[in-house]
Amino acid sequence: MASRILTRFWDPSGARYGIPTYPRHLVPAHLLTLHQLAARGLRPGPQGAQAQALWRGRRPGPPRVRAVSLYDVRFALPKRTPSPRRRTDIFKISRTCPECLIDVGYVLPRHLGVCLDCTEEVAA
């Protein structure tokens, strides 16, 4: 039975599924999932999914085929990291009330534009 499943999901040319397809445990070493790329500090970059891995799910109920997209590690780029200065500037601006000029310790509601204390003062 296992060999039938392996043959069902073996399509490296992409003729049957439209994209190269492999059984889950027979994926070439240069193809990785998004989680595997992230663990190596990489992101897919401009490439789309290069292949897919299929396997039969084990949940109860009707048999389901599970899939995961695979990306070529040779075309992957390093992960982007936001600059610390920009992050702190945005963080401070969105926490400082423009009315009372106090860092309130939470992100200001965009629809109010001021802290909750200033909103209550205006409403009263």
Rank of each mutant, 00 (worst) to 15 (best):
A2N: 11
S3Q: 07
S3F: 05
S3T: 01
R4K: 15
R4D: 08
R4N: 07
I5H: 01
I5Y: 00
I5C: 02
L6F: 12
R8G: 01
F9E: 00
W10N: 05
D11I: 00
P12E: 10
G14N: 04
G14I: 00
R16T: 01
I19H: 05
P20K: 06
T21L: 01
P23H: 08
P23A: 02
H25L: 14
L26H: 14
P28T: 10
H30Q: 03
H30F: 10
H30E: 07
L31E: 14
T33V: 08
Q36H: 12
Q36Y: 12
Q36F: 11
L37Q: 08
L37P: 03
L37A: 03
A38N: 07
R40M: 12
L42I: 05
L42Q: 13
R43H: 08
R43C: 03
R43S: 07
P44L: 00
P44G: 01
G45T: 06
Q47F: 08
Q47C: 04
Q47G: 08
Q50D: 04
A51T: 05
Q52F: 12
A53C: 02
L54I: 03
G57C: 08
R58I: 00
R58L: 03
P60G: 09
G61D: 06
G61Q: 08
P63F: 09
R66G: 07
R66D: 14
R66A: 11
A67G: 03
V68Y: 01
V68E: 12
V68W: 00
S69T: 05
L70W: 05
D72Q: 11
D72G: 03
D72Y: 04
V73Y: 03
R74Q: 09
R74H: 12
F75Y: 08
A76T: 12
A76D: 09
P78N: 10
R80G: 02
T81F: 12
P82H: 13
P82L: 12
P82D: 05
S83F: 06
R87L: 15
R87V: 15
R87F: 15
D89W: 05
D89L: 14
I90A: 11
F91Y: 08
F91D: 13
K92T: 01
I93V: 07
I93S: 11
S94F: 07
R95E: 10
T96R: 15
T96H: 04
C97Q: 04
C97P: 06
P98N: 08
E99R: 15
L101F: 14
L101H: 14
I102Y: 01
D103N: 13
D103T: 01
D103I: 01
G105M: 03
Y106R: 04
L108V: 02
L108H: 06
L108D: 00
L108M: 05
L112V: 04
L112K: 08
G113R: 02
G113M: 06
V114M: 12
C115A: 03
C115N: 05
D117K: 15
D117Y: 11
T119K: 15
T119F: 12
E120R: 15
E120I: 11
V122G: 05
V122M: 14
V122K: 13
A124P: 06
A124Q: 11
A124W: 14
